[in-house]
């Protein structure tokens, strides 16, 4: 990454800042890298644009004491971790505001898709179950007529009929279970996701 790319990335990460603050930060880092002489060393010492942006944003948001969160990447492991963590928190909180609504819509859409899928499944099970029941019943009904013409054939028909009826009953039972459990599970899933997002949003604003 050269200086231009680095600064461009930094600018992207800082776009939530007011124009003059962003300009100031970019000028500072532009100068800093130029003054350092060796672009690559300076860039690697500064840390990724994300890390630099996180520190600036955290400072800009809190407006007071600088959070000693993002530390030297060459430093102890935990400080690097806490730097990453801060970066993540800041980035997430930045994204939360414009994204909260779309996220809710996305979750609701996923819920809707799940409902449709489940309904299709239930319908398929029910229809197959009914068809099997019907076919089985027909087999059982007609087997006595065949009994004296072709014993083997008749027995085959009876067996088939019983199996079909059994499978049909199983499928219809399964349909009932899926309906009873599946739909409430979907609604729980969707409401939980949405509530969590709303909660998160509330905590952020508090």
């Amino acid at each position: 990454m050269n200086k231009a790319e680095y600064l461009q990335k930094l600018e992207q990460k800082l776009r939530v800042l007011p124009e003059d603050e962003r300009r100031d930060a970019l000028n500072y880092h532009d100068e800093y890298i130029s003054d350092a002489g060796d672009e690559n060393t300076a860039i690697s010492q500064l840390g990724t644009p994300g890390e630099v942006a996180a520190i600036i944003l955290a400072q800009s948001v809190s407006g007071e004491k600088n959070p000693q969160s993002a530390q030297n990447p060459d430093g102890p492991k935990e400080s690097a971790f806490s730097g990453m963590k801060t970066a993540m928190i800041v980035i997430l909180s930045l994204f939360a505001l414009p994204l909260a609504f779309p996220v809710v819509i996305t979750v609701a859409s996923i819920g809707f898709a799940l409902v449709i899928t489940l309904a299709t499944l239930v319908f398929t099970f029910a229809v197959t179950g009914a068809a099997l029941l019907f076919a089985g019943a027909a087999g059982i009904l007609f087997f006595p007529f065949l009994l004296f013409q072709n014993f083997g054939h008749a027995m085959f028909l009876l067996g088939n009929g019983l199996i079909s009826v059994g499978l049909g009953i199983l499928l219809i039972k399964l349909t009932v279970v899926v309906m009873r459990r599946g739909f409430p599970a979907i609604s729980r899933f969707v409401s939980k996701k949405i509530l969590r997002r709303v909660d998160h949003e509330k905590n952020r604003l508090d």
Partner: peptide, 14 residues
């Protein structure tokens, strides 16, 4: 002092 290169800008800004 053992400070990272990126710590100073926010300090100057503040």
């Amino acid at each position: 002092l053992d400070v990272s290169e990126s710590t100073l800008y926010p300090v100057m800004r503040r």
